[in-house]
Design a protein around this nucleic acid. Structure first.
Length: 447
RNA sequence: GCCCCCAUCGUCCAGCGGCCUAGGACAUCGCCCUUUCAAGGCGGUAACACGGGUUCGAAUCCCGUUGGGGGUGCCA
Protein backbone atom coordinates (compact mmCIF):
# COMPACT_ATOMS: atom_id res chain seq x y z
CA UNK A 1 0.00 0.00 0.00
CA UNK A 2 1.59 3.22 -1.14
CA UNK A 3 -0.11 6.32 0.26
CA UNK A 4 -0.97 9.07 -2.25
CA UNK A 5 0.56 11.54 0.19
CA UNK A 6 3.83 9.65 0.02
CA UNK A 7 3.49 9.60 -3.74
CA UNK A 8 3.16 13.36 -3.72
CA UNK A 9 6.26 13.74 -1.56
CA UNK A 10 8.23 11.45 -3.84
CA UNK A 11 7.08 13.45 -6.82
CA UNK A 12 8.11 16.76 -5.28
CA UNK A 13 11.51 15.29 -4.43
CA UNK A 14 11.94 13.92 -7.91
CA UNK A 15 10.82 17.05 -9.72
CA UNK A 16 12.99 19.22 -7.49
CA UNK A 17 16.03 17.02 -8.08
CA UNK A 18 15.49 17.05 -11.83
CA UNK A 19 14.91 20.78 -11.92
CA UNK A 20 18.17 21.33 -10.05
CA UNK A 21 20.12 18.77 -12.01
CA UNK A 22 20.61 16.99 -8.71
CA UNK A 23 20.64 13.38 -7.60
CA UNK A 24 17.47 11.73 -6.39
CA UNK A 25 18.33 9.22 -3.70
CA UNK A 26 16.04 6.41 -2.60
CA UNK A 27 16.49 5.31 0.97
CA UNK A 28 14.25 2.78 2.63
CA UNK A 29 13.71 3.69 6.25
CA UNK A 30 13.18 0.26 7.69
CA UNK A 31 14.78 0.68 11.09
CA UNK A 32 11.83 -0.83 12.91
CA UNK A 33 12.74 -4.45 12.25
CA UNK A 34 9.92 -5.81 14.38
CA UNK A 35 7.27 -4.24 12.20
CA UNK A 36 8.83 -4.14 8.79
CA UNK A 37 7.64 -6.52 6.12
CA UNK A 38 9.95 -7.26 3.20
CA UNK A 39 7.07 -7.09 0.72
CA UNK A 40 6.39 -3.49 1.71
CA UNK A 41 9.74 -2.48 0.30
CA UNK A 42 8.94 -4.19 -2.97
CA UNK A 43 5.63 -2.36 -3.15
CA UNK A 44 7.26 0.98 -2.44
CA UNK A 45 9.76 0.59 -5.24
CA UNK A 46 7.13 -0.62 -7.64
CA UNK A 47 4.91 2.35 -6.87
CA UNK A 48 7.74 4.83 -7.28
CA UNK A 49 8.62 3.32 -10.63
CA UNK A 50 5.00 3.42 -11.72
CA UNK A 51 5.06 7.14 -10.98
CA UNK A 52 7.99 7.50 -13.32
CA UNK A 53 10.27 8.68 -10.52
CA UNK A 54 13.22 6.38 -10.97
CA UNK A 55 15.97 7.08 -8.47
CA UNK A 56 19.52 8.01 -9.43
CA UNK A 57 21.10 6.46 -6.35
CA UNK A 58 20.12 3.66 -4.02
CA UNK A 59 18.04 2.08 -2.80
CA UNK A 60 19.79 2.14 0.53
CA UNK A 61 18.32 0.09 3.34
CA UNK A 62 18.67 1.42 6.84
CA UNK A 63 18.27 -2.09 8.14
CA UNK A 64 21.69 -2.84 6.64
CA UNK A 65 23.49 0.18 8.01
CA UNK A 66 23.43 -0.46 11.75
CA UNK A 67 27.20 -0.03 12.05
CA UNK A 68 27.00 3.56 10.89
CA UNK A 69 24.32 4.32 13.44
CA UNK A 70 26.25 2.60 16.19
CA UNK A 71 29.26 4.77 15.43
CA UNK A 72 27.08 7.87 15.42
CA UNK A 73 25.58 6.94 18.78
CA UNK A 74 29.04 6.32 20.21
CA UNK A 75 30.23 9.70 19.04
CA UNK A 76 27.32 11.48 20.63
CA UNK A 77 27.84 9.47 23.80
CA UNK A 78 31.51 10.31 23.91
CA UNK A 79 30.69 13.98 23.70
CA UNK A 80 28.47 13.61 26.73
CA UNK A 81 25.38 14.47 24.74
CA UNK A 82 23.52 11.28 25.46
CA UNK A 83 22.72 9.09 28.45
CA UNK A 84 21.15 5.73 29.15
CA UNK A 85 17.65 5.52 30.49
CA UNK A 86 15.54 2.66 31.80
CA UNK A 87 12.32 4.56 32.41
CA UNK A 88 9.18 2.98 31.05
CA UNK A 89 6.36 5.08 29.74
CA UNK A 90 4.26 4.02 32.71
CA UNK A 91 6.94 5.05 35.18
CA UNK A 92 7.14 8.45 33.54
CA UNK A 93 3.40 8.96 33.67
CA UNK A 94 3.33 7.84 37.29
CA UNK A 95 6.06 10.36 38.15
CA UNK A 96 4.62 13.32 36.32
CA UNK A 97 0.96 12.48 36.63
CA UNK A 98 0.47 13.65 33.06
CA UNK A 99 -0.17 11.55 29.99
CA UNK A 100 0.88 14.18 27.55
CA UNK A 101 4.11 15.52 28.96
CA UNK A 102 7.51 14.71 27.50
CA UNK A 103 10.36 12.91 29.20
CA UNK A 104 11.33 14.52 32.51
CA UNK A 105 15.07 13.83 32.46
CA UNK A 106 14.93 11.41 35.38
CA UNK A 107 17.94 9.41 34.20
CA UNK A 108 20.04 12.37 33.07
CA UNK A 109 22.55 12.11 35.85
CA UNK A 110 22.05 8.56 37.09
CA UNK A 111 25.12 7.40 35.19
CA UNK A 112 23.54 4.21 33.86
CA UNK A 113 26.09 2.19 31.93
CA UNK A 114 23.84 0.72 29.26
CA UNK A 115 22.65 -2.82 28.74
CA UNK A 116 19.38 -4.67 28.32
CA UNK A 117 16.35 -2.56 29.02
CA UNK A 118 18.21 0.71 28.63
CA UNK A 119 17.63 3.14 25.80
CA UNK A 120 19.92 5.96 24.82
CA UNK A 121 18.52 9.46 25.08
CA UNK A 122 19.88 12.64 23.59
CA UNK A 123 20.61 15.31 26.17
CA UNK A 124 18.83 18.37 24.83
CA UNK A 125 20.32 21.64 26.13
CA UNK A 126 18.09 23.40 28.66
CA UNK A 127 18.27 26.71 26.92
CA UNK A 128 18.88 28.20 23.52
CA UNK A 129 17.02 27.64 20.31
CA UNK A 130 17.47 26.20 16.87
CA UNK A 131 16.20 27.69 13.65
CA UNK A 132 15.14 25.54 10.76
CA UNK A 133 15.77 26.88 7.30
CA UNK A 134 12.80 25.71 5.29
CA UNK A 135 12.25 26.62 1.64
CA UNK A 136 8.50 26.44 2.06
CA UNK A 137 7.96 27.72 5.57
CA UNK A 138 10.68 30.24 6.14
CA UNK A 139 12.62 29.96 9.37
CA UNK A 140 10.60 28.44 12.18
CA UNK A 141 12.47 28.65 15.47
CA UNK A 142 12.17 26.15 18.30
CA UNK A 143 13.05 26.78 21.92
CA UNK A 144 15.22 23.94 23.16
CA UNK A 145 13.56 24.14 26.56
CA UNK A 146 10.38 22.79 24.99
CA UNK A 147 12.09 19.75 23.50
CA UNK A 148 12.37 16.63 25.60
CA UNK A 149 15.37 14.33 25.83
CA UNK A 150 14.40 11.99 23.04
CA UNK A 151 15.42 8.40 22.47
CA UNK A 152 18.01 7.83 19.76
CA UNK A 153 18.76 4.15 20.34
CA UNK A 154 16.15 1.68 21.52
CA UNK A 155 16.83 -0.61 24.45
CA UNK A 156 17.19 -3.45 21.95
CA UNK A 157 20.14 -1.65 20.39
CA UNK A 158 18.40 -0.48 17.22
CA UNK A 159 18.76 3.13 16.16
CA UNK A 160 15.64 5.25 16.04
CA UNK A 161 14.77 6.73 12.68
CA UNK A 162 15.85 10.22 13.75
CA UNK A 163 19.40 9.12 14.46
CA UNK A 164 19.52 6.86 11.42
CA UNK A 165 18.26 9.60 9.14
CA UNK A 166 20.72 12.18 10.34
CA UNK A 167 23.64 9.76 10.17
CA UNK A 168 22.58 8.82 6.66
CA UNK A 169 21.96 12.37 5.53
CA UNK A 170 25.47 13.27 6.58
CA UNK A 171 26.96 10.11 5.09
CA UNK A 172 25.10 10.51 1.81
CA UNK A 173 25.77 14.23 1.58
CA UNK A 174 22.11 15.03 1.38
CA UNK A 175 21.67 18.70 0.53
CA UNK A 176 17.88 18.98 0.60
CA UNK A 177 15.28 17.10 2.56
CA UNK A 178 11.78 17.35 1.10
CA UNK A 179 9.15 15.62 3.24
CA UNK A 180 5.71 15.89 4.76
CA UNK A 181 4.75 18.63 7.16
CA UNK A 182 4.24 16.06 9.89
CA UNK A 183 8.03 15.90 10.18
CA UNK A 184 8.48 19.56 10.94
CA UNK A 185 8.41 19.03 14.73
CA UNK A 186 11.21 16.46 14.35
CA UNK A 187 13.44 18.84 12.53
CA UNK A 188 14.92 20.71 15.49
CA UNK A 189 15.84 17.34 16.97
CA UNK A 190 17.47 16.32 13.72
CA UNK A 191 19.47 19.55 13.69
CA UNK A 192 20.68 18.94 17.23
CA UNK A 193 21.88 15.48 16.24
CA UNK A 194 23.45 16.82 13.08
CA UNK A 195 25.46 19.38 14.99
CA UNK A 196 26.55 16.75 17.48
CA UNK A 197 27.86 14.61 14.65
CA UNK A 198 29.45 16.99 12.19
CA UNK A 199 30.53 20.52 11.45
CA UNK A 200 29.09 20.28 7.95
CA UNK A 201 26.36 22.81 7.24
CA UNK A 202 22.83 21.74 8.01
CA UNK A 203 20.69 20.46 5.16
CA UNK A 204 18.01 22.63 3.66
CA UNK A 205 14.54 21.51 4.51
CA UNK A 206 11.24 21.74 2.72
CA UNK A 207 8.13 20.55 4.54
CA UNK A 208 5.29 20.09 2.12
CA UNK A 209 1.74 20.49 3.43
CA UNK A 210 -0.25 17.38 4.22
CA UNK A 211 -3.07 16.08 2.06
CA UNK A 212 -6.45 16.14 3.74
CA UNK A 213 -9.90 14.64 3.21
CA UNK A 214 -13.20 16.54 2.80
CA UNK A 215 -13.30 16.99 6.57
CA UNK A 216 -9.83 18.52 6.39
CA UNK A 217 -8.13 15.78 8.32
CA UNK A 218 -4.83 14.30 7.23
CA UNK A 219 -5.54 11.48 4.77
CA UNK A 220 -5.33 8.22 6.62
CA UNK A 221 -5.36 4.73 5.25
CA UNK A 222 -7.85 3.71 7.91
CA UNK A 223 -10.68 5.98 6.89
CA UNK A 224 -9.77 7.36 3.46
CA UNK A 225 -9.11 5.91 0.06
CA UNK A 226 -5.39 6.57 -0.30
CA UNK A 227 -3.71 3.59 -1.94
CA UNK A 228 -1.96 4.52 -5.15
CA UNK A 229 -2.30 0.92 -6.31
CA UNK A 230 -6.04 1.09 -5.86
CA UNK A 231 -6.34 4.14 -8.07
CA UNK A 232 -4.21 2.43 -10.66
CA UNK A 233 -6.40 -0.69 -10.49
CA UNK A 234 -9.51 1.43 -10.85
CA UNK A 235 -8.32 2.80 -14.14
CA UNK A 236 -6.53 6.01 -13.27
CA UNK A 237 -3.59 6.53 -15.57
CA UNK A 238 -0.19 7.49 -14.28
CA UNK A 239 0.31 10.81 -16.11
CA UNK A 240 -3.04 12.05 -14.83
CA UNK A 241 -2.28 11.02 -11.27
CA UNK A 242 1.18 12.54 -11.49
CA UNK A 243 -0.05 15.81 -12.95
CA UNK A 244 -2.89 16.07 -10.44
CA UNK A 245 -0.67 15.37 -7.45
CA UNK A 246 1.66 18.14 -8.58
CA UNK A 247 -1.18 20.66 -8.48
CA UNK A 248 -1.73 20.05 -4.78
CA UNK A 249 0.25 22.82 -3.15
CA UNK A 250 1.69 24.08 -6.40
CA UNK A 251 0.64 24.98 -9.94
CA UNK A 252 2.37 25.49 -13.25
CA UNK A 253 2.45 29.03 -14.56
CA UNK A 254 -0.26 30.29 -16.84
CA UNK A 255 -3.83 29.26 -17.48
CA UNK A 256 -3.40 25.51 -17.73
CA UNK A 257 -3.00 22.99 -14.95
CA UNK A 258 -2.71 20.04 -17.29
CA UNK A 259 0.76 20.35 -18.75
CA UNK A 260 3.54 18.02 -19.87
CA UNK A 261 5.69 16.64 -17.09
CA UNK A 262 8.72 18.29 -18.66
CA UNK A 263 7.08 21.66 -18.15
CA UNK A 264 6.51 20.85 -14.52
CA UNK A 265 10.13 19.88 -14.05
CA UNK A 266 11.19 23.06 -15.79
CA UNK A 267 9.04 25.38 -13.71
CA UNK A 268 8.99 23.74 -10.30
CA UNK A 269 10.37 25.73 -7.38
CA UNK A 270 10.05 24.57 -3.79
CA UNK A 271 9.72 28.18 -2.69
CA UNK A 272 6.50 28.39 -4.70
CA UNK A 273 4.88 25.54 -2.83
CA UNK A 274 1.89 26.54 -0.76
CA UNK A 275 2.02 25.86 2.95
CA UNK A 276 -1.64 25.17 3.65
CA UNK A 277 -3.02 21.61 3.65
CA UNK A 278 -4.64 20.56 0.36
CA UNK A 279 -7.80 18.55 -0.16
CA UNK A 280 -7.23 15.43 -2.25
CA UNK A 281 -10.21 15.74 -4.59
CA UNK A 282 -11.03 12.56 -6.46
CA UNK A 283 -13.49 14.46 -8.65
CA UNK A 284 -10.78 16.71 -9.93
CA UNK A 285 -8.42 13.76 -10.32
CA UNK A 286 -11.16 12.15 -12.41
CA UNK A 287 -11.40 15.20 -14.64
CA UNK A 288 -7.64 15.07 -15.18
CA UNK A 289 -7.90 11.36 -15.91
CA UNK A 290 -10.59 11.80 -18.54
CA UNK A 291 -8.54 14.51 -20.14
CA UNK A 292 -5.43 12.34 -20.30
CA UNK A 293 -7.40 9.40 -21.68
CA UNK A 294 -8.87 11.55 -24.45
CA UNK A 295 -5.44 12.86 -25.31
CA UNK A 296 -4.04 9.36 -25.90
CA UNK A 297 -3.39 8.11 -29.41
CA UNK A 298 -5.78 5.30 -30.39
CA UNK A 299 -2.94 2.82 -30.20
CA UNK A 300 -1.81 3.95 -26.75
CA UNK A 301 -5.39 3.87 -25.63
CA UNK A 302 -5.84 0.29 -26.82
CA UNK A 303 -2.73 -0.79 -24.97
CA UNK A 304 -3.86 0.99 -21.83
CA UNK A 305 -7.25 -0.75 -21.97
CA UNK A 306 -5.79 -4.22 -22.23
CA UNK A 307 -5.87 -5.09 -18.49
CA UNK A 308 -9.61 -4.43 -18.46
CA UNK A 309 -10.52 -6.48 -21.51
CA UNK A 310 -11.91 -9.99 -21.43
CA UNK A 311 -9.27 -12.28 -22.93
CA UNK A 312 -11.96 -13.87 -25.09
CA UNK A 313 -12.87 -10.63 -26.83
CA UNK A 314 -11.77 -10.19 -30.41
CA UNK A 315 -9.19 -7.41 -30.39
CA UNK A 316 -9.97 -6.38 -33.97
CA UNK A 317 -13.58 -5.81 -33.01
CA UNK A 318 -12.51 -3.89 -29.95
CA UNK A 319 -10.29 -1.71 -32.12
CA UNK A 320 -13.33 -0.65 -34.12
CA UNK A 321 -15.01 0.45 -30.90
CA UNK A 322 -12.07 2.53 -29.72
CA UNK A 323 -12.99 5.80 -31.43
CA UNK A 324 -16.54 5.42 -30.17
CA UNK A 325 -15.65 5.15 -26.51
CA UNK A 326 -12.49 7.14 -25.90
CA UNK A 327 -14.29 10.42 -25.18
CA UNK A 328 -16.79 8.70 -22.93
CA UNK A 329 -14.52 7.61 -20.11
CA UNK A 330 -13.46 8.89 -16.76
CA UNK A 331 -11.47 5.78 -15.90
CA UNK A 332 -10.31 2.80 -17.94
CA UNK A 333 -12.28 0.52 -15.65
CA UNK A 334 -15.43 1.74 -17.39
CA UNK A 335 -14.36 0.22 -20.71
CA UNK A 336 -15.96 -3.22 -20.28
CA UNK A 337 -19.33 -1.73 -19.42
CA UNK A 338 -19.16 0.42 -22.53
CA UNK A 339 -18.20 -2.23 -25.07
CA UNK A 340 -19.44 -5.44 -23.48
CA UNK A 341 -22.63 -5.51 -25.56
CA UNK A 342 -20.57 -5.91 -28.70
CA UNK A 343 -19.23 -9.24 -27.55
CA UNK A 344 -22.34 -10.66 -25.92
CA UNK A 345 -25.90 -9.50 -25.51
CA UNK A 346 -26.22 -8.19 -21.97
CA UNK A 347 -29.32 -8.61 -19.87
CA UNK A 348 -31.64 -5.78 -20.76
CA UNK A 349 -32.02 -3.36 -17.93
CA UNK A 350 -35.70 -3.33 -16.85
CA UNK A 351 -36.00 0.39 -16.34
CA UNK A 352 -34.27 1.01 -19.68
CA UNK A 353 -36.73 -1.31 -21.36
CA UNK A 354 -39.72 0.38 -19.80
CA UNK A 355 -38.39 3.79 -20.66
CA UNK A 356 -37.75 3.03 -24.30
CA UNK A 357 -40.50 0.57 -25.15
CA UNK A 358 -43.58 1.78 -23.28
CA UNK A 359 -44.71 4.56 -25.64
CA UNK A 360 -47.69 3.62 -27.82
CA UNK A 361 -45.90 4.39 -31.09
CA UNK A 362 -43.12 1.92 -30.35
CA UNK A 363 -44.59 -1.43 -31.51
CA UNK A 364 -45.46 -0.25 -34.99
CA UNK A 365 -42.24 1.67 -35.35
CA UNK A 366 -40.35 -1.34 -34.14
CA UNK A 367 -41.84 -3.66 -36.74
CA UNK A 368 -40.98 -1.16 -39.48
CA UNK A 369 -37.36 -0.94 -38.32
CA UNK A 370 -37.05 -4.69 -38.14
CA UNK A 371 -38.28 -5.10 -41.67
CA UNK A 372 -36.12 -2.25 -42.93
CA UNK A 373 -33.06 -3.85 -41.35
CA UNK A 374 -33.85 -7.25 -42.83
CA UNK A 375 -34.31 -5.63 -46.20
CA UNK A 376 -30.96 -3.90 -46.16
CA UNK A 377 -28.29 -5.52 -48.22
CA UNK A 378 -24.78 -5.86 -46.89
CA UNK A 379 -23.75 -2.96 -49.06
CA UNK A 380 -26.14 -0.65 -47.30
CA UNK A 381 -25.06 -1.68 -43.83
CA UNK A 382 -23.23 1.49 -42.93
CA UNK A 383 -23.78 4.13 -40.26
CA UNK A 384 -25.19 6.76 -42.60
CA UNK A 385 -27.77 4.45 -44.15
CA UNK A 386 -28.78 3.09 -40.78
CA UNK A 387 -29.16 6.58 -39.43
CA UNK A 388 -31.37 7.81 -42.27
CA UNK A 389 -33.39 4.62 -42.16
CA UNK A 390 -34.25 5.14 -38.51
CA UNK A 391 -34.73 8.82 -39.08
CA UNK A 392 -37.25 8.22 -41.89
CA UNK A 393 -39.20 5.57 -40.06
CA UNK A 394 -39.20 7.81 -37.02
CA UNK A 395 -40.69 10.63 -39.07
CA UNK A 396 -43.46 8.33 -40.25
CA UNK A 397 -44.31 7.73 -36.63
CA UNK A 398 -43.99 11.39 -35.81
CA UNK A 399 -40.78 10.95 -33.79
CA UNK A 400 -37.46 12.76 -33.89
CA UNK A 401 -34.29 10.75 -34.25
CA UNK A 402 -33.42 11.13 -30.58
CA UNK A 403 -36.63 9.34 -29.59
CA UNK A 404 -36.67 6.94 -32.49
CA UNK A 405 -33.23 5.49 -31.85
CA UNK A 406 -34.05 4.57 -28.26
CA UNK A 407 -36.01 1.33 -28.84
CA UNK A 408 -33.33 0.09 -31.21
CA UNK A 409 -30.59 0.98 -28.79
CA UNK A 410 -32.23 -0.85 -25.92
CA UNK A 411 -33.01 -3.87 -28.06
CA UNK A 412 -29.43 -4.16 -29.24
CA UNK A 413 -27.31 -2.85 -26.37
CA UNK A 414 -29.58 -3.41 -23.38
CA UNK A 415 -29.21 0.18 -22.22
CA UNK A 416 -30.49 3.67 -23.02
CA UNK A 417 -26.99 5.07 -22.98
CA UNK A 418 -23.80 4.03 -24.69
CA UNK A 419 -21.54 4.66 -27.64
CA UNK A 420 -22.98 6.11 -30.90
CA UNK A 421 -25.62 3.62 -31.98
CA UNK A 422 -25.34 3.34 -35.75
CA UNK A 423 -21.58 3.00 -35.71
CA UNK A 424 -21.94 0.27 -33.11
CA UNK A 425 -24.56 -1.53 -35.25
CA UNK A 426 -22.06 -1.61 -38.10
CA UNK A 427 -19.47 -3.20 -35.83
CA UNK A 428 -22.00 -5.78 -34.63
CA UNK A 429 -23.09 -6.76 -38.13
CA UNK A 430 -26.47 -7.23 -39.68
CA UNK A 431 -27.13 -10.79 -38.57
CA UNK A 432 -26.35 -10.16 -34.92
CA UNK A 433 -28.38 -6.98 -34.88
CA UNK A 434 -31.37 -8.71 -36.45
CA UNK A 435 -31.14 -11.57 -34.00
CA UNK A 436 -31.23 -9.18 -31.05
CA UNK A 437 -34.02 -7.16 -32.62
CA UNK A 438 -36.05 -10.29 -33.13
CA UNK A 439 -35.55 -11.36 -29.52
CA UNK A 440 -36.65 -7.96 -28.32
CA UNK A 441 -39.63 -8.08 -30.69
CA UNK A 442 -40.80 -11.26 -29.05
CA UNK A 443 -40.49 -9.74 -25.63
CA UNK A 444 -42.42 -6.69 -26.86
CA UNK A 445 -45.21 -8.87 -28.19
CA UNK A 446 -45.50 -10.73 -24.90
CA UNK A 447 -45.89 -7.71 -22.69
C1' G B 1 -2.30 21.03 28.12
C1' C B 2 2.36 22.25 25.54
C1' C B 3 5.18 23.15 20.77
C1' C B 4 4.87 24.29 15.68
C1' C B 5 2.38 25.38 11.07
C1' C B 6 -1.57 27.58 8.25
C1' A B 7 -5.82 31.01 6.54
C1' U B 8 -8.07 34.07 -1.51
C1' C B 9 -14.55 31.24 -4.90
C1' G B 10 -17.55 24.69 -2.45
C1' U B 11 -12.32 22.62 -3.94
C1' C B 12 -7.06 23.22 -5.98
C1' C B 13 -4.06 27.06 -7.50
C1' A B 14 -2.62 32.59 -9.48
C1' G B 15 -1.80 37.10 -6.85
C1' C B 16 4.46 38.70 -3.64
C1' G B 17 2.00 47.24 -1.99
C1' G B 18 -0.88 50.46 -6.98
C1' C B 19 -1.91 46.54 -13.38
C1' C B 20 -7.63 43.47 -8.68
C1' U B 21 -14.56 46.39 -10.57
C1' A B 22 -9.29 39.60 -7.68
C1' G B 23 -7.49 35.54 -12.72
C1' G B 24 -7.45 30.09 -14.11
C1' A B 25 -8.85 24.93 -13.19
C1' C B 26 -12.40 21.23 -10.96
C1' A B 27 -17.33 21.16 -9.28
C1' U B 28 -22.04 23.60 -10.15
C1' C B 29 -25.92 26.24 -13.21
C1' G B 30 -27.64 27.93 -18.18
C1' C B 31 -27.29 28.03 -23.55
C1' C B 32 -25.31 25.95 -28.22
C1' C B 33 -23.98 21.45 -30.79
C1' U B 34 -26.13 16.57 -30.91
C1' U B 35 -28.38 9.56 -32.63
C1' U B 36 -28.41 8.29 -26.33
C1' C B 37 -24.38 9.37 -23.08
C1' A B 38 -20.11 11.84 -23.27
C1' A B 39 -16.79 15.22 -25.53
C1' G B 40 -16.56 20.20 -27.45
C1' G B 41 -18.02 25.62 -27.69
C1' C B 42 -20.12 29.94 -25.18
C1' G B 43 -21.82 32.20 -20.77
C1' G B 44 -23.30 32.59 -15.38
C1' U B 45 -23.13 31.99 -9.83
C1' A B 46 -19.21 32.01 -6.39
C1' A B 47 -13.68 34.11 -2.36
C1' C B 48 -9.50 37.97 -0.05
C1' A B 49 -12.03 34.78 8.07
C1' C B 50 -12.43 39.02 11.67
C1' G B 51 -10.34 43.37 14.28
C1' G B 52 -6.53 46.73 14.72
C1' G B 53 -2.23 49.04 12.79
C1' U B 54 1.86 50.63 8.85
C1' U B 55 1.22 53.33 4.10
C1' C B 56 -0.82 58.45 -0.27
C1' G B 57 -2.45 53.33 -1.31
C1' A B 58 -3.10 46.37 1.42
C1' A B 59 -5.70 40.25 -0.77
C1' U B 60 -0.53 41.45 -0.54
C1' C B 61 3.55 44.06 5.35
C1' C B 62 2.95 43.92 11.14
C1' C B 63 0.06 42.66 15.66
C1' G B 64 -4.09 40.40 17.85
C1' U B 65 -8.64 37.38 17.62
C1' U B 66 -11.12 33.41 15.60
C1' G B 67 -10.94 29.13 12.90
C1' G B 68 -8.29 24.88 10.78
C1' G B 69 -4.06 21.53 10.71
C1' G B 70 0.37 18.85 12.37
C1' G B 71 3.32 17.03 16.43
C1' U B 72 3.56 15.64 21.38
C1' G B 73 5.92 6.99 20.96
C1' C B 74 11.93 2.80 23.00
C1' C B 75 6.55 4.31 15.03
C1' A B 76 8.24 6.48 10.60
Amino acid sequence: MFHVGSARSVLFNYVFAKNQGGTFVLRIEDTDTERNQPEWTEGIMKAIRWLGCDWDEGPYFQSERADLYKAAADRIMSRGQAYFCDCSRDALVARTGNQQVGYDGFCRDRGLQGGPGQALRFRVPDSGSTTVVDLIRGTPTFELSTIEDFVIVRSNGEAMFLLANVADDIDMRISHVVRGEEHLPNTPKAQLLWQALTDLPLPIWAHVPVLVNEKRQKLSKRRDKVALEQFRDEGFVMPAMRNYLMTLGWAPRGEHEIVPFETIIEQFQLSDVNSAPAFFDIKKLSAFNGDYIRAMSPVDFEVACEPWLDPAWDRDVFRQMVPLIQTRLVTLAEVPALVGFVFAMPVIDDSAWTKAMSADWVPGFYIDVLSAFSAMTNAQWDAESLKSTIENIGTEHDQKLGKAQAPVRVAVTGSTVGPPLFEALVVLGRDEVLARMTAAGERLANT
